[in-house]
Design a protein around this nucleic acid. Sequence first.
DNA 1: ATGCTGTTGATATTAGCTATCAGTGAGGGT
DNA 2: ACCCTCACTGATAGCTAATATCAACAGCAT
Lengths: 153, 153
Amino acid sequence: MIQQLNKGDNQVKKIYELLKENDFKITPQRKVILNLFFDRIGEHLSAEEVYNILQENHPEIGLATVYRTLDLFAELDVLQKMSFDDGKNRYELNNNEIHHHHHLICVDCGKVTEFSDDLLEALEEQITRKTKFKINDHKVKFYGICKDCQETR
Amino acid sequence: MIQQLNKGDNQVKKIYELLKENDFKITPQRKVILNLFFDRIGEHLSAEEVYNILQENHPEIGLATVYRTLDLFAELDVLQKMSFDDGKNRYELNNNEIHHHHHLICVDCGKVTEFSDDLLEALEEQITRKTKFKINDHKVKFYGICKDCQETR
DNA sequence: ATGCTGTTGATATTAGCTATCAGTGAGGGT
DNA sequence: ACCCTCACTGATAGCTAATATCAACAGCAT
């Protein structure tokens, strides 16, 4: 059987190296959780959702480990931590190729879609110039009515 | 003693009317909490902080009422609900004159400053055009190092 | 003034998350 | 290949922000 190497594998290897560089161990639990996110690009998973998904094939992984692992990956900028105001943190792969994407939250159905953009960099420059606040990152959420909800109304 | 009418009073009256229009009662608790926010413009208060401030002059107001009142005012767009990732919701007066102001969060000292701006409207138009997502509002958080923390380093 | 009904305060409960701790295993040294 | 060490894990207790419950209360329309 030929070992296929797809796009994700390279990224995964880089993340393994990142763990090593920072003296973290590459444990099976971390591998599994990382793979889960590569299998579900575009989703915004909460810790409990991750835990529930794992129940099927990896019921041995505890909830505390899920929380710890998500935090660790967020700290390493592998995952991006976010919240859509439902009282729980959510995570998604921090895809470097889509550096800045914003979230469009439908206040009607709750669906979250994404929008890629780098327009905010102009605004960041303006802010830094005026306030001397050195900006590293931003989080933008837009609230409104999604296309589907506009139609079924 | 002459009854002075300051800027806040007019706004307060409008909010009383807003409550009436929506069949909510104008209770002493709501008056007190609303006044508290007019006395502390620029601060981002959590429910517990509001409760603690009230302990001095209004210890009879319960914590549950504080939570309910903040939620109500947020629902009516009198207060803006926000979170700076410290696990608790925060509120500030939704001043119509400063329609859009963004928050600059210092990842070093945690201080939150504000920045007024309307540049995002261009971006909103672009998004609506491309995605048919009808945007009503946005929340923007910038993360970085504030001026003070850059100097003391 | 009266009565309806939304509101309140006290408190129990929930939910998301973190701390604790004994047992385990990744991975470097030999 | 075998230790050895210490980071890591799973189970669970604990914590904290927020919500639900409910009897008593009080705006405000009449």
